[in-house]
Design a protein around this nucleic acid. Structure first.
Length: 271
DNA sequence: CCCCATGTTCGACA
DNA sequence: GTGTCGAACATGGG
């Protein structure tokens, strides 16, 4: 479920706990979300630590606690973060619950993920963890230059554009719907190979994918407002959905290994 | 029972 | 090395 802006939204859910100290940890030690972490260490290291900062990069999150303790969270397909008052009775899909000291709201921080494609990591040390170091610029960043974009397309010349946009090392935060949205706005067939995109088409894609990232952050990150009807988003999963631009029936096809929605009229497939 | 799902990773293969 | 494909992971919904 979560892509760039949804990840920011969920990260914000834990933000009210900045400055608060963890009193106790409740977790399910055999949950798959702990496959890259030692649950015992998480349970013993977090109590008495104060949450200092919370930030996101792409689909990843990093919560920094006092004493140089870094908690990494990836939401996978169905993960979410929320807070709740005490006393809190964990649901069966709540894999990590942090109880906070004091009586102020929120009482607990919860990481829930019924599919368990999500992931929790822990790192202790003065330096940033390996998984939070040397991160590539996000598409909405100033540092995400046209030159960088061109290099990516040149390197992935034989891949369909859809597959390239889903590469987290190149477009951190982009997922299935953002990739489709950007290609639709740029009027490019998702199966078009990067090398086949002409100069103007590349320019459109660069402009529109950055716009999609910024629009998503504006609309979804603060309150998770429903995306407007002039985006592809609200039409893409509906059977019988039609293109908000020309009303043509939308098509769905597996491209780059994922179900891809596009408009056959304004994003004509190459024969 | 079937198929599908806003994600990642790994192995087999061209 | 590049890229594709399918499976796997685990669960729920239609």
């Amino acid at each position: 479920m979560p892509e760039l802006a949804e990840v920011v939204y969920y990260c914000n859910q834990w933000l009210p706990a900045v400055g608060r100290t963890v009193a106790a940890v409740r977790l399910h030690p055999r949950a798959r979300v702990f496959r890259d972490a030692d649950p015992e260490t998480i349970a013993s290291a977090l109590p008495e630590r104060k949450l200092l900062t919370a930030d996101t990069h792409g689909k990843g999150m990093r919560f920094l606690f006092s004493g140089g303790l870094h908690l990494g969270v990836h939401l996978g397909m169905a993960g979410r973060l929320f807070t709740a008052p005490l006393p809190y009775q964990p649901d069966k899909h709540d894999h990590l619950v942090l109880e906070l000291e004091g009586r102020a709201a929120p009482g607990v921080l919860v990481f829930s993920d019924y599919r368990m494609f999500g992931r929790i990591r822990l790192h202790e040390g003065a330096e940033a963890p390996p998984w939070w170091r040397d991160l590539p610029p996000e598409p909405q960043d100033r540092g995400f230059t046209r030159a960088r974009f061109e290099k990516i397309l040149d390197r992935r010349s034989r891949a369909p554009l859809k597959a390239v946009l889903l590469d987290q090392a190149c477009f951190p935060g982009f997922g299935n719907w953002m990739a489709d949205e950007a290609l639709w706005r740029a009027r490019l067939f998702p199966g078009l190979r990067a090398a086949e995109a002409r100069k103007e088409e590349r320019a459109r894609l660069y402009r529109d994918l950055r716009k999609v990232a910024r629009d998503a952050l504006r609309v979804i990150a603060p309150e998770w407002t429903a995306p407007p009807a002039n985006w592809l988003f609200p039409h893409r999963w509906k059977d019988g959905g039609s293109c908000p631009r020309d009303r043509a029936p939308l098509e769905r096809e597996t491209i780059g290994g994922r179900t891809t929605c596009y408009c056959p009229v304004c994003q004509p497939p190459i024969a």
